[in-house]
Amino acid sequence: MTRIRRSFETHWYAWAMVLPVVLVLAVLVGYPLGRGIYLSFTDANEANVARTIGVNHIPATYHFVGLDNYWKVLSGQEGHFYSRLTWTVVWTASCVLLHYALGLGLALLLNRKVRFRALYRVLLILPWAVPAFVATFSWRLIFNEKYGVLNAVLDRLGLGTVDWLGDTTLQKISAVAVNVWLGVPFMMVAILGGLQAIPGELHEAAEMDGASPWQRFRHVTLPGLRPVSGTVILLGTIWTFNMFQVIYLLVGQGASSDSEILVTYSYRLAFQGVRDYAGSATYGILILSLLLVFAVFYRRMLTRQETAR
């Protein structure tokens, strides 16, 4: 008891300062998460949750069904979980890879002494300033089969037009393109900051020792970028895995579409047709678990690299 008291006396200041955040997180994240987990163990849907129609209040009649939902999803009986998961992973990997590669390339270019550097920087950051939903709609117009400028150009060049948003494969490619356009500036800016944090002496020393440009890139620049890269790749992966707007607004609004990722599918379960709250919650929990597992492994890998160095 006295220990608790003493602990309170030394730490009450810190606790008071974090209290607002803890409250907000508990109410807005903790409680809903608990409810979400609970819902995923029930058969709740639009027809049996508590609701008020006019003045009549109808109490909830859904039941606890244990792991049924998870079993249905994971055994592949419902919703093509594995094909969606595959596409989600491919989507995330290709987007993050392209984001990082292009961001690194552009950051390296911008990190040199170049005339109009400030102008290039502003122009290259521009996609970041455009809200994702606006950008997605704009790209939809560009990709438009009949009146889109992309097809008009292809037609003019005699290459024939392509139904960019009609075919599943092309939908996927278009979605990746839009997301890459949106995401490169963030990577570029973050990596540029990382590049500028690498002490110039390291490069000079390497140059003195006769390291070729490639060797300097490989052994000075890349290791120097490691802390920044670690964080931005982790964040980028999480954001892309959960990227809702691009997929939903570009392709996912119609009836069932194979180019939907897990998040948009879960959303559609909850809010289209007969609202399947339990199914949606199950997908949500599965997505969260996947990301958690990934984050834990990724961070462990980073610390191992760190100690191996």
């Binding site: 409810r35 979400g36 964040l235 929990i285």
Partner: peptide, 11 residues
């Protein structure tokens, strides 16, 4: 930050 909005939206 990893929470997909899909987890929280229904609750």
């Amino acid at each position: 930050q990893m929470f997909p909005m899909a987890v929280l939206i229904v609750p």
